[in-house]
C-alpha cells in the first residue's frame, strides 16, 4: 500500500550535485540558476496555495518586500549578513501576511486573486512615489557578507548561489513532507469541499491563513535571494506582471510535486533568456503561446509528463 518515496534521498543528491556543479558553472548560468531557484521559492508557496484552490496574483508583494528588506538592511541599517537577512525578511513578510491574511482568508477564487493583486499594487504605488527608495528606478543593494566574512566580488555570486541551493533544498525537503502531512491534505480538502471541512471541525479560514503566511515567507526569501544576486531592487518586483509570471511558472511546472516548481522555474528562465536573445520583440509572445499550450495540452503542468513516464515504466 505504501509506495516507497525516494524524494528525500533524491533531493539530497540533487543538492550535492548542484553545489558541485556550481564550482564549474559559467557565470551567466550560475546567475540564471540562482534566479530560477529564488523564483522557485516563490512558486513553491504559490503552488501550496493552488493546491488549496487559491491563485494569488499578488505574490510579488512579498517578493518585492524580501528584496527591499535586503536593500534597506544593507544601505540604511548596515546589516549585510546574508543568512540573518533571510530570517529578517521572512519574519517581516510573515508579519505582514498575518495581518493581510486575517482579511484574505475569507476570500476565494477570483476575489482572492484580485485582492492579493490589489495589495501588491498598493506596495508598488507606494514604492514608485518614494524618492528615498529611488522611486521607479529602485536602488543598488549593498554586497552581502556571510557570518562576518566579506566575499570578494568574484566569490560573491558563488556564495549566493550556494546559499540559494541550500535554502531551496531545505524548502523542497520540508515542503515535500508538508504536502504529505495532515495540513497539506487539509489544503486539498479546502479546495474540494469547504463545507465538509467545516463539519470535520476544522476552520477552512485557518487552513488558508496558515498557507498564505507560509507562502508569503517563502516569497520573501525568494525576493531576498534575487536582490542579493542581482545587486539591485526596483518596484517592478511588486508589479502585477511579476506576480503573473509566478503564476505562469507554477502552471508550467504543475502542482503535483514540490520539484515541479523548480523544474518550471528553471525552464522558464531558460525559455525567457533564449527567447529574449533570439527575438527581443517577440519573447512575450513566445511565453504567452507556451502558457496557452500548457493550459490546453498539459493542464497539470510539465510534471504530469514526468509522472506519466514513471508510471508507464513501472508497469512494464
Amino acid at each position: 500500500m505504501l509506495k516507497t518515496d525516494n524524494t528525500s534521498r533524491n533531493l539530497c543528491i540533487a543538492f550535492v550535485l548542484l553545489l558541485l556543479v556550481g564550482l564549474i558553472l559559467p557565470n551567466w548560468l550560475a546567475f540564471l540558476t540562482t534566479i530560477a531557484l529564488a523564483k522557485a521559492m516563490v512558486v513553491v508557496g504559490l503552488v501550496m496555495l493552488m493546491r488549496a484552490g487559491l491563485v494569488s496574483f499578488g505574490q510579488g508583494l512579498y517578493y518585492c518586500l524580501g528584496g527591499y528588506t535586503v536593500g534597506i538592511a544593507g544601505q540604511h541599517l548596515g546589516i549585510t549578513d546574508a543568512v540573518g537577512i533571510l530570517f529578517v525578511s521572512a519574519f517581516i513578510a510573515g508579519c505582514l501576511a498575518a495581518l493581510l491574511g486575517l482579511l484574505l482568508c475569507r476570500y476565494r477564487e477570483i476575489f482572492f486573486a484580485m485582492l492579493t493583486l490589489a495589495f501588491s499594487m498598493i506596495l508598488y504605488g507606494v514604492l514608485v512615489k518614494t524618492s528615498e527608495l529611488g522611486s521607479t528606478d529602485g536602488f543598488n543593494v549593498a554586497k552581502v557578507t556571510l557570518l562576518g566574512w566579506q566575499p570578494s566580488p568574484g566569490q560573491l555570486s558563488l556564495v549566493v548561489y550556494s546559499l540559494a541551493c541550500l535554502v531551496a533544498f531545505l524548502t523542497a525537503f520540508f515542503m515535500h513532507r508538508y504536502y504529505q502531512s495532515g495540513m497539506g491534505f487539509a489544503g486539498e480538502a479546502v479546495r474540494e469541499n469547504e463545507i465538509r471541512v467545516e463539519y470535520l471541525g476544522v476552520s477552512p479560514q485557518r487552513v488558508v491563513f496558515i498557507k498564505y503566511v507560509l507562502a508569503a515567507m517563502l516569497a520573501a526569501v525568494g525576493g531576498s535571494i534575487t536582490a542579493m544576486i542581482a545587486g539591485h531592487v526596483d518596484p517592478e518586483m511588486a508589479y502585477w506582471t511579476t506576480s503573473g509570471e509566478f503564476v505562469f511558472v507554477a502552471l508550467l511546472g504543475g502542482t503535483g510535486h514540490v520539484v515541479a516548481a523548480f523544474i518550471g522555474a528553471f525552464l522558464f528562465e531558460v525559455i525567457r533568456t533564449i527567447a529574449f536573445d533570439l527575438a527581443p520583440y517577440t519573447w512575450q509572445m513566445i511565453l504567452g503561446t507556451t502558457l496557452l499550450l500548457v493550459i490546453f495540452f498539459l493542464p497539470k503542468g510539465l510534471w504530469s509528463l514526468l509522472k506519466a513516464k514513471k508510471v508507464g515504466g513501472n508497469n512494464v
Partner: peptide, 14 residues
C-alpha cells in the same frame, strides 16, 4: 486527521 484532538501536523505524514 481533522477530527482527532491533535492539531493538524505539518511534517508528520498523514
Amino acid at each position: 486527521a481533522m477530527l482527532s484532538k491533535k492539531r493538524l501536523g505539518m511534517q508528520a505524514p498523514m
